[in-house]
Computed example of a mutant assay.
Amino acid sequence: MPLPEDAPELSPALDPWEGLEPSGGQGSGGGRPSKPGPGLHLVATPIGNARDITLRALDVLAAADLIVCEDTRVTSRLMQIHGLHRPLMPYHDHNAAKVRPEILARLAQGAVIALVSDAGTPLVSDPGYRLVVDAVAAGIKVTTLPGASSVLAALTLAALPTDRFLFAGFLPPKSAARRETLGELAPVRATLVFLESAQRLADMLADAAAVLGPRPAAVARELTKLFEEVRRETLDSLAAHYAAAGPPKGEVVVVIGPPTEAAGASEAEIDAALQAELAHAGPSAAAAKVAAAFNLPRRQVYARAMALKAAAP
């Protein structure tokens, strides 16, 4: 992330890794990892590629007294891939209220418990939130082991502004409720990120186009997997594509650009101005000129300039 123009320069003597201890994992030179401390450990797991897991995550999963997971079949497969064997307990929307007291009781007795989701970072669109709230209220230590996240992965690939974004989870399944929610989000001056099922994708995009207009957007699927795909077009174009092509395979994340601030200026007009400037100037200079002309945030226009440049033949 670039520093503000008036930010003081950092001393070259500063070491960003100073004071950090070796992980203790294989090849780290730190020897055999010690057993993690008692408490609830929120462990991010891969969203597709099984190698996208951290050394800390493997250490905790290998030593936990219990691993709490959405689907034991999914987590068992991940454990098998990495040669790990620990007790598993299912924890999902249908049994959370029943098993949460048991988990909290074991935590109170000093157990080391890891909480994982089927894929990605726990608590993002899964029932782990209530468990964390109750654990904190009970004075139990809660720590996080950050890692893979489909939300951030899609955001970084979308070629849309990343300086401000809103994750809104899944939209309502019915069109009327979905359009109402999109209407509430329309004025938000940030990139919007949604999860969506493949079966509802075309309808969701059509509703988004109707409510938000032809904003630039991206549909990311099969992230980190062999057939990873990111389609970057306007909402109406994406809706037409998936209506014709049918539901795609894999998990889907939809990223939608923020609203434009230019009164009366359409996305097409801004793109045309950018393309004209890009014909004889670099993305930075082109973005600066178009942003000033349309009274738009320079970062937003620069991101669009880079997307247009990348898409150019």
Rank of each mutant, 00 (worst) to 15 (best):
A220P: 02
A206V: 07
L274P: 10
A285E: 15
T260R: 13
E229Y: 04
H280S: 11
R304I: 04
M204P: 02
A202S: 12
E228P: 02
A273H: 06
R221T: 10
T234Q: 10
A286C: 13
V219C: 02
R299D: 08
L212W: 15
A210D: 15
A285W: 01
Q275P: 04
A208L: 04
R298L: 10
A190H: 07
P283N: 08
D271I: 07
Q199P: 00
E277R: 13
A305S: 08
V193Y: 02
R221Q: 02
T191G: 03
K225E: 14
A206H: 11
E196M: 08
S266G: 12
R304Q: 10
Q300L: 14
L235P: 14
P247R: 05
D236L: 01
A239V: 09
V211F: 12
A245P: 00
G213R: 09
V290A: 11
V230H: 12
L278A: 06
A240H: 04
D271P: 07
H241W: 12
E251F: 02
L212S: 09
A265N: 00
D236V: 07
E229K: 00
K225V: 13
A263Q: 07
A198H: 06
E277H: 10
A239L: 12
A263D: 13
S237V: 14
A303Y: 04
P283L: 03
L201Y: 04
E229D: 15
T234G: 12
R231A: 05
A285N: 12
N295E: 12
E180I: 00
G264N: 02
V211W: 09
A293R: 13
V230W: 04
V219H: 03
L238S: 03
A208N: 10
L278P: 07
D236A: 11
L195H: 14
V253H: 03
L205P: 02
R221D: 02
L223C: 10
L238M: 05
L235K: 08
Y242T: 01
A276E: 15
Y242H: 00
A293Q: 14
A279F: 07
T260S: 15
R304V: 11
P187A: 01
I270F: 02
A291P: 10
T181I: 11
L223Y: 03
F227M: 11
A263K: 15
E267T: 06
H280V: 14
A202M: 07
L212D: 12
A209L: 05
L195Q: 07
E261V: 02
L195S: 05
L201N: 03
G183M: 05
Q275K: 14
V252H: 06
S197C: 01
A198I: 01
A198L: 01
K249N: 12
A177T: 13
A245C: 05
P259I: 03
P259W: 03
Q199L: 09
V290P: 10
F227L: 14
